[in-house]
């Protein structure tokens, strides 16, 4: 049963042109790293560049963009197109549908972000692969948290992608960098704290890793519960509605 849900979700996500675009976004990170290497920069500065590339571009842009598109598509596009009825008209507990969709989306997002981040980090700064590993590892955590939030969002509003993009730009991008007090609710800051913890020094984050992990857990579980709650009560109307 879960296998069937996973198969349908995976094929629904991978069958689209947009997945190719998301791959290109990841390739872009690696490309920037490659150009930096080709420009033959002094190795001493490589650490700073790698941190900026993986932190600002990787965790700051790539992860939320990929997660918002995959996360809102997994359930949201089935709802919009109406194919969700073929999952809902079955005696399947709704939490199973949410968990299957969430884990597949997480997996897809992870592949699309962690691999480019790892490769880009190693290409930009081969002397210290630990930094690349730390950022890749933290991107896995961020992928789960973002995906859970965006999946719940897709069950709350039919304009989840727009709202999600606005959230990424305004909350994660502007508010959390201006107002220190809001950082505890910033997924990007959670991820940076995890990266610092994994790397042990080279990365500097604003939050303590313990706080960040606990907050990430609360947000993920909360969003997943919200998604289950909403899916149990989702209403299907006819074509015109």
């Amino acid at each position: 049963m879960t296998v069937t849900l996973i198969e349908i979700t995976l094929r629904g996500l991978l069958n689209r042109r947009r997945t190719l675009l998301l791959v290109l976004l990841g390739v872009l990170v690696v490309l920037v790293a490659g150009l930096y290497r080709l420009a033959d920069q002094p190795q001493a500065e490589a650490a700073g560049f790698t941190g900026a590339l993986l932190g600002n571009f990787g965790l700051g842009v790539l992860v939320p963009l990929v997660a918002v598109i995959v996360g809102t598509a997994a359930l949201g596009s089935e709802l919009e197109e109406g194919t969700i009825v073929y999952l809902l008209a079955r005696p399947v507990p709704r939490w199973r549908i949410v968990l299957a969709k969430l884990s597949v989306s997480w997996l897809v997002v992870t592949v699309l972000v962690a691999v480019p981040i790892l490769v880009a980090g190693i290409v930009a700064h081969p002397g210290d692969p630990g930094v690349a590993l730390a950022y890749a590892g933290s991107s896995v955590v961020a992928a789960l948290e973002y995906t859970a939030v965006f999946m719940a969002l897709s069950l709350v509003t039919s304009r989840a992608l727009i709202v999600g993009l606005a959230y990424v730009v305004i909350w994660e991008g502007v508010v959390a960098s201006l107002f220190a007090g809001t950082r505890i609710f910033s997924i990007r800051q959670h991820a940076l704290a995890v990266a610092e913890w994994l790397d042990g020094g080279a990365v500097t984050a604003e939050l303590a890793p313990g706080v960040a992990l606990v907050m990430a857990g609360i947000v993920t579980v909360g969003a997943t519960l919200l998604a289950v709650h909403r899916l149990e009560r989702v209403e299907l109307r006819g074509e015109t509605a």
Binding site: R18, L21, L25, L28, V32, Y36, Q41, P42, E45, G48, F49, A52, L53, N56, F57, G60, V61, L65, V68, I69, R159, L161, I162, L165, V169
Partner: peptide
Amino acid sequence: RRAYAAGAVLALFLVGSVVSGILQVQG
């Protein structure tokens, strides 16, 4: 779809300014 268009436009400017900002301080 409008949402994908918005995402793509935003992504272009976002990626552009972020990468540009990173490179700006790299020599």
